[in-house]
Design a protein around this nucleic acid. Sequence first.
DNA 1: TCCATATTTCAATGATATTTGAAATATGGA
DNA 2: TCCATATTTCAAATATCATTGAAATATGGA
Lengths: 112, 112
Amino acid sequence: METKDVVTALAALAQDSRLAIFRALVQAGPAGLAAGKIGELTGIAPSSLSFHLKELSHAGMVGSQQAGRFVIYTANFTTMNALLGFLTENCCGGNPCSPVCTPACVTEKEAT
Amino acid sequence: METKDVVTALAALAQDSRLAIFRALVQAGPAGLAAGKIGELTGIAPSSLSFHLKELSHAGMVGSQQAGRFVIYTANFTTMNALLGFLTENCCGGNPCSPVCTPACVTEKEAT
DNA sequence: TCCATATTTCAATGATATTTGAAATATGGA
DNA sequence: TCCATATTTCAAATATCATTGAAATATGGA
């Protein structure tokens, strides 16, 4: 994951409405939620919601698929994991440094 | 960690200069880096650097301590871990959903 | 085909963030 | 004390983002 993409992903989440949307989708799991349902849950107006969903989509944080008249959005867990990994990459110069900066176990996963 | 604080933390990282600063500090580890050294590593002008360090500091992503004429900044790993945990909180409604949305092992840590 | 529903697009407005350079502050050493 | 270094503050200019309402598009069903 490149720095540019990380900034984009972080910026996508760094906003009240979008963080609320994303969390709703994370909690909904792989089944996702229709756009209208997200609006209902978060109280965000349709046009504003659409704007934010596009932001999240461009950032790769969510995906979508048409289902009849509905558009189902889902959280992109792959991107999220890549994001988490990036933030802890090369922690302490790659030297063992627990417990002070060991982030749970993300360091054990690969850090691309 | 409250939503408001999460947005602040994410916003702090969602910017080229600040992400570069934060990563330099993560890689430097607990020893941290003097402000001037950060400027040297990142190529950010002093006044701009100071602005961004304050943003990161307000967001709780970094801490600082005076050391003679220098101010040593360090990454706040505790905040970072809380941030990572928040993003995956209540994943899939708390139901088992691996591997699709299991984020490494953050779920195993507590998720406050 | 026509209608109601679901979602997106567009343009305009107001609010925030980023960068810069100059000046201010603070520290340690001669 | 005086000077050089290290860092922060301030104000101004530019750029970017978020929200709104109205209008456009698309889908399924009567």
